[in-house]
Design a protein around this nucleic acid. Structure first.
Lengths: 186, 186, 186, 186
DNA sequence: AATGAATGAGGGTTCATTCAT
DNA sequence: GATGAATGAACCCTCATTCAT
């Protein structure tokens, strides 16, 4: 029961933080969104900042968990890459604003949260690095700087998605994969 | 004189907004950074929001102006692409935080500013689209979806730069250009 | 059993009120000090204020009881006076903070508590008045205004003790008695 | 002008703190008592605590200044003693509650304020000690422990006055002086 | 035109009290 | 009876904005 309410608060907070950003989010809005009293939040979280950190941590955990599912061996790199993009697409469609919280670099939080963010970003890049590494070893991909390649994959993915290009058109994923794989040169 | 002070305020505001973000930036900090009285800002700008919009507009104008310089005809696409990346690199190095203000989607401003942002982003993509279009017509690049290609170029550029990968390593631009042009596939 | 728990709560409250003062004392601290649940206090006391009043009343009752023991007839005034001071000394040493609660005039309580305090103070002064009265009638003391004399005795006692002058030096009591009795004039 | 308003705030705060105590005093009450806006206080004082400290410091400064006036040489100890009591009497009549703030030991302030309080108390006792010392040297008073004697004088003074005994009866000062000088013994 | 003192709406946080279990 | 999770009134403090000078 207790943990249940914690979750309710985190979900409400996620939606309000995502809508309004950290500074403009009001604890009262969060509490009413959660269907509880304003003071109740403080039974579960020390402060607004603390709540924010937990929201982020939760969102990130879900995200990382999903990401890890992609690595499964034995499938061609091309498919994994499509999955990687598809995953982000779904994530962004379902939790557009929350995704922003993860992708962007917020200035309004503890140094420790900032470090956490950095480490998360690194985790995400690492997933891409692993995808690449395995593909390079199998000879599917030429031997480029893995970290840079991973960064490029992530950047293309995020920028395509946040640009809203792919919102309704599934074929775009394949095109994106094609461009990442073969470039744009004739 | 009047316009001179306006500029002073915008510069000060740019530096404070970049440092603290919109919500945490204090009008008092801006005024003292500008070396003027707190009330004076309101002689030139209606409100904090208004000031912020002007700051963004100014930064964007400079940015767009620089971007337009790249289009110059007669040079190979590869060079233009390198210039495009180089321009962003310099911009990000000089005005890292301000650049964020432009690249990110701020939730803390007027709907009208949001629209302005959208149009700016479109302008930026348009520059890339034009680069691509001209290259496609010259046969330098295969006939991909121009807007998507442009978005990919931008995504690669921004993500590489914000990742800090290139901070001190100039060769990276060529590698990035290579990957954009020829992809990562063997 | 019921009364037993009441006593436990009063003792816990006394220690917390003494440590933190009325306003800063937290009901939760009191309950955990008492080893019971927060809500349980309200089974025994209507409110924080009510609890405070009971704490005071209890402390005062103990105090008054001790005071009354001094009056015993047949002993010289000088000894009684020394006892009076000694009693306060012990009281202050054992329950320094609680003693403050009694001696001082708290502004943070009901008018009725204030009146109670007044009456307690009067009781204490009365004890001193009785000491004096009996001494005056026996000719041990000159015929001064009894109430003023009593107030003086009390004032000297409390001020000496709270000043911490006598904390470790027993002889001081005799000196104090001497000065009260014979004044400071040559 | 600026200092003028500071003084206005301190006076208002003194009256509210005196009436309600530190914890219950509301900044809003203080501001409205001062006839200014709530935020204005914070232009002059960092926080409620800071304001409180300044109030105390101010009250104490006035008090110490008045006390020092008593020491003037060449007058008999008896007169000085009467002046000492008279001074406290007037002080308590005019600023009864504020006087309490000085005399009592508040638990709700910085350690540094507590130390300041201690030092003030010492100053006050020192004045009394000096009175006594000079009297002892002139042979007006027998050679008692000066600090204890001083504490006794202060105790008698304060206890008589806070008891409200002397509120309207001027003769009491002489009686008090008499008792301090000659004791109560026949 | 320029200033900065004054303002007060707004929001995070605390904690006495309630009440369902 | 005993509990402690839930509540929301209350209060300190910040800071964008105004306006008298």
């Amino acid at each position: 029961m207790k943990e249940g309410k914690r979750k309710v608060i985190i979900d409400a907070a996620a939606s309000i933080f995502a809508r309004d950003g950290f500074d403009r989010a009001k604890m009262e809005d969060i509490s009413s969104q959660a269907g509880i009293g304003k003071g109740t939040i403080y039974e579960y979280f020390k402060s607004k900042r603390d709540l924010f950190q937990e929201v982020i941590k939760h969102a990130v955990d879900v995200y990382i968990e999903l990401l890890k599912g992609i690595g499964a061996e034995g499938r061609p790199f091309e498919e994994k890459l499509a999955d990687f993009i598809q995953l982000h697409k779904e994530l962004l469609e379902k939790h557009r604003d929350l995704a922003n919280l993860i992708m962007k670099e917020p200035r309004d939080v503890t140094e420790s949260t900032r470090r956490y963010f950095q480490s998360v970003k690194k985790d995400v890049v690492d997933v891409a690095v692993n995808l690449l590494d395995s593909a390079i070893q199998k000879g599917e991909v030429r031997d480029i700087n893995r970290r840079m390649g991973a960064q490029i994959i992530l950047g293309v993915t995020v920028s395509l998605l946040t640009a809203g290009l792919m919102r309704d058109e599934d074929w775009d994923i394949d095109d994106a994969v094609d461009i990442i794989l073969h470039g744009i040169s004739k």
